[in-house]
Amino acid sequence: MSDTFSIDLRRYLRGGGHSFGVWVALVVVIVFGLMRYENFGGAYNISSFLNYNAMFIVIAVGMCFVILTGGVDLSVGSVAAFTSVVAAYLSPFGIQVALPGAVLAGLAIGGINALFVVALRIPPFIATLATMLGAKGGALVISGAQTIAIDWGSNFTKLGMEKAFDLLPWSIFITAAVVIALWIVLERTSIGRTVLAVGGGEDAAGMMGLHVNRAKVFVYILSGGCAGLAGVFLASGFGAGQPLEGIGWELSAIASVVVGGTLLTGGVGSVGATVAGALLLGLVFNILNFENGRGVISLSAYWQMVIRGGFLFAVILLQSQLSRQPKGPQG
């Protein structure tokens, strides 16, 4: 056990996973926030920050799997918008129906992506672009382009508001459970390692007798399901199904994955670093809000975006510098 741990730690410190930089940046940003803002580490900020970012985290983790195979899923934002409407419609039946229903809708759209990419061999970029438009249209059609209010009388509202174990909202626990489960899937199961092998060399993986297509189907369905779950969080967080939301979410998710050191070509990356990447991107907004709150500066949302872009660039630069590992021993 300790042997495994020390090996993994060494791999991280050596930057073998290309993900050292994101952890450094995350610690720096958190320490900066704690020192500069009184309420940064307060229960309210932590709870609301995580609650709001839960949907981005689950989407990013799903995206991470897709990118690890060398693919991409552009449909996630639209899928979340679509399933938020589904969840809102199902909310009168309670969380026990609305949550699985919306996730199922996401899985189904993920299944369509898998069909396009694996069975019909359409490049992922194009296939998921098509479902992105399709899901967007579907969300507008079933909602009549209106936000659909959730049933405030049902237990659906508890998801983002009621604290589990008197600690944090349920959505955060669900997210944590999903992240841990997927971390185990990637690191410790065959399908997870196959995902990595496919991204590292699809032909080679096939030659090794691995189930390449199965792994690809898995990641697109998984990503769809994650986006479906994000839609549930969206509906509960805003109190309504949001057919117009989700624009650009796929790019934020890709950014989180990349900041986490995952290669866009696939083969190398981790769930943990992706979560760190998503937290980091969220924290930049959080800190800018605090900065605005101090009244010294006042940045518009547009400028915040510019700053986030610059920050993204800086972290990726940091990553590439830190992950420059010396070439291994030859022979």
Binding site: T189, T194, L196, G267
Partner: peptide, 27 residues
């Protein structure tokens, strides 16, 4: 026909990984 981005171990055991009693890969 190996995957250069993955570890030596993974390339040797991939598809036939040893498992722990919980069914997870025993690295």
């Amino acid at each position: 026909s190996l995957v250069p981005l993955r570890s030596v171990t993974e390339n040797v055991v991939m598809g036939y990984e040893p498992r722990t009693r919980f069914g997870l890969i025993d690295w």
